[in-house]
């Protein structure tokens, strides 16, 4: 039937935020190359449970690359070595027979470990709560076609809006900066006429919240863009800088 591989796993196990974590070695034989990475972890967990051990805890949900719940730093890359995918879309055909795969949680002061590979990303919610919205109440809005928006602008806003909030940008950044995440939202809303009204306060408030939450500053290494499963461009960061500086100089 399918091609299978044997692999060795080095997985980070940590009981909780206050506990010391450590790598634990496992090995799995006969893994079909058509299984996804998370299905491989399911198989591992099944064997652990059958042995009476506690399964490896990791975040996952939709398993089709859109909810942003899955994380994992696999062999030195957030979401693993494949390009433009989330961990749930990563398949075992990307690994060689006999390979040792190292699996770590996102590591950043902004994302404390909850258990094993599961981290707390609520800081992202707080950044959005600081201004990642257009202040309109339900109802009482104009007709959807009342304002024409040039297609290239709408498309660019869509590209920025495709951020799934997984946190790979923070995980990849040597500075633990959340600028790509933040800039994607600021950019989307700054491009659209509906969001322009609050563009200045939005940029200021969201950056202030990001700083307050202890994320690092951007040094334009671009690692975030390369590792982003949705290929969000760092040109959004330039736009965020522009919006922020414009707002501050207009104060």
């Amino acid at each position: 039937m399918d091609k299978t591989i044997n692999i060795k796993l080095k997985i980070w196990r940590q009981k909780g935020p206050k506990y010391q974590g450590a790598f634990k070695d496992y090995s799995l034989d006969g893994v079909s190359v058509d299984t996804s990475f998370l299905e491989m972890l399911d198989i591992l967990n099944e064997t652990l449970i059958n042995k009476g051990e506690e399964p490896v805890v990791f975040d996952h949900d939709c398993r089709e690359g859109i909810c942003g719940m899955c994380s994992l730093y696999v062999n030195g890359h957030p979401h693993g070595p494949d390009e433009d995918v989330t961990t749930c879309q990563l398949h075992m055909r990307k690994f060689k027979d006999g390979e040792t795969i190292t699996v770590e949680p996102w590591r950043s002061a902004g994302f404390p470990v909850i258990r094993d590979l599961m981290v707390d990303r609520r800081a992202f919610d707080k950044i959005i709560q600081a201004g990642g919205y257009v202040s309109v109440n339900t109802g009482g809005v104009p007709d959807a076609n009342a304002i024409a928006i040039p297609k290239p602008i709408a498309d660019e806003a869509m590209d920025a809006a495709s951020c799934i909030g997984c946190g790979a940008c923070v995980a990849a950044c040597k500075n633990g900066s959340a600028m790509l995440f933040l800039s994607a939202k600021v950019s989307q809303l700054a491009l659209l006429p509906q969001g322009k009204v609050e563009a200045a306060t939005r940029a200021k408030n969201m950056v202030a919240k990001m700083d307050e939450l202890g994320f690092g500053a951007c040094t334009n290494t671009g690692a975030c863009e390369v590792e982003c499963p949705k290929s969000i461009s760092i040109s959004n960061i330039a736009r965020l800088n522009r919006e922020f500086l414009k707002a501050k100089f207009n104060d």
């Binding site: 919205y133 257009v134 309109v136 339900t138 109802g139 809005v141 104009p142 007709d143 959807a144 024409a148 928006i149 040039p150 297609k151 709408a154 498309d155 806003a157 869509m158 809006a161 989307q188 809303l189 659209l192 509906q194 969001g195």
Partner: peptide, 16 residues
Amino acid sequence: DQCVAQGVPFAREYGG
């Protein structure tokens, strides 16, 4: 209408 007002980037034609 509501979603457009929130800044949902729906697909558009060249006329906007």
